[in-house]
């Protein structure tokens, strides 16, 4: 998240050289807790609905409540190392089986069935999974929960279940050196370095590409989950729909007019064209849909002085 905030910050500081943002990447729960304790002016999170604040935190943003807005989407791909093979299709059930070592060979009949015409090697499947990036783990387990049916019984988690082998956090990823390896990575790491699998969404296979993810975003619905809480859905029929959703959380009111003005200014910069372009260039993130962006801008513009 640091990269995203830095990218937005650059967009904000351009026309406002006398401002600064201090951001600590301590995780969404810590950020929301700090917001509730009035120890920060905004927070970032990937799953705002799932965070339970400590009892001592008090009500988030007082009576006026918070604004919870999807501000960026970071595509997540399934990267693999199979020399000479550029396109593999995997559905959620197969993926879950590979992670849990129920499917152990790349030429398993279930995989071959999804890849007619492709010759897959008789190589061991070597999942290279890490708990280092909890947001990615969360997004992938959410995808498996929604699409894999009974094949994934662990729900949405930020850490891989015990049935999955996890790599040592401190070691760098070894996908380059592991033939048969399989890893879930965000777009920033994948770049053009790794081959990625096409995944199945609602019965349709979608390839991993920024354009495909943008199509899923643009076709996805913008829903209002409550006053000031927007949700950006991804349409798997229209495009690749596996991404980490990054939300920014503001208060609707701040106790000081200057603070409210600064937060509103910063929020508008996040959703500005420059802010979103910076997020794409520096953090490989994609913007929410036009509709979501417009609604978010409107909500952020109304941040005002109040009781917080």
């Amino acid at each position: 998240m640091s990269g995203l905030v830095s990218a937005w910050n650059e967009a904000w500081r351009g026309p406002n050289p006398a401002v600064s943002v201090a951001f600590s990447p301590d995780g969404g729960a810590v950020g929301l807790d700090a917001l509730a304790r009035e120890q920060t002016h905004f927070a970032t999170t990937t799953m705002p609905g799932s965070v339970e604040l400590p009892a001592s935190s008090g009500q988030l943003c007082g009576q006026a409540g918070p604004l919870i807005l999807p501000a960026a989407l970071l595509p997540v791909g399934v990267a693999y190392n199979l020399p000479g093979i550029r396109s593999v299709r995997l559905n959620a059930a197969i993926l879950a089986g590979m992670f849990e070592k129920k499917i152990t060979r790349w030429n398993d009949p279930l995989i071959l069935q999804e890849n007619p015409g492709t010759t897959l090697p008789d190589l061991e499947v070597k999942p290279l999974l890490s708990d280092k990036d909890k947001d990615v783990t969360e997004a992938v387990t959410e995808y498996l929960s929604q699409e894999a049916g009974d094949e994934w019984a662990h729900g949405i988690t930020t850490e891989w279940p015990d049935t999955v082998d996890v790599q040592d956090k401190t070691k760098p990823l070894e996908l380059d050196n592991t033939v048969g390896g399989l890893a879930v990575l965000d777009r920033g790491i994948i770049g053009s370095r790794y081959s990625t699998a096409s995944l199945q969404f609602d019965g349709s296979y979608q390839s991993f590409s920024p354009d495909s993810v943008l199509a899923a975003i643009e076709a996805g619905e913008t829903t209002l989950r409550g006053p000031g809480s927007l949700e950006q859905e991804l349409d798997g029929q229209a495009g690749y729909a596996l991404a980490v959703k990054e939300y920014v959380v503001f208060c609707r009111e701040y106790s000081h007019a200057q603070t409210a003005g600064l937060v509103s200014s910063w929020g508008q910069s996040v959703f500005s064209e420059t802010g979103q372009r910076n997020a794409n260039i520096f953090a490989s993130a994609l913007p929410p849909s036009r509709k979501t962006t417009e609604q978010a801008k409107e909500l952020v513009a109304n941040i005002a002085e109040g009781t917080e």
Binding site: A22, F23, A34, S56
Partner: peptide
């Protein structure tokens, strides 16, 4: 609740 990764608030 005042101590964070980047310092004390």
């Amino acid at each position: 609740g005042m101590s964070f990764g980047h310092g004390i608030h």
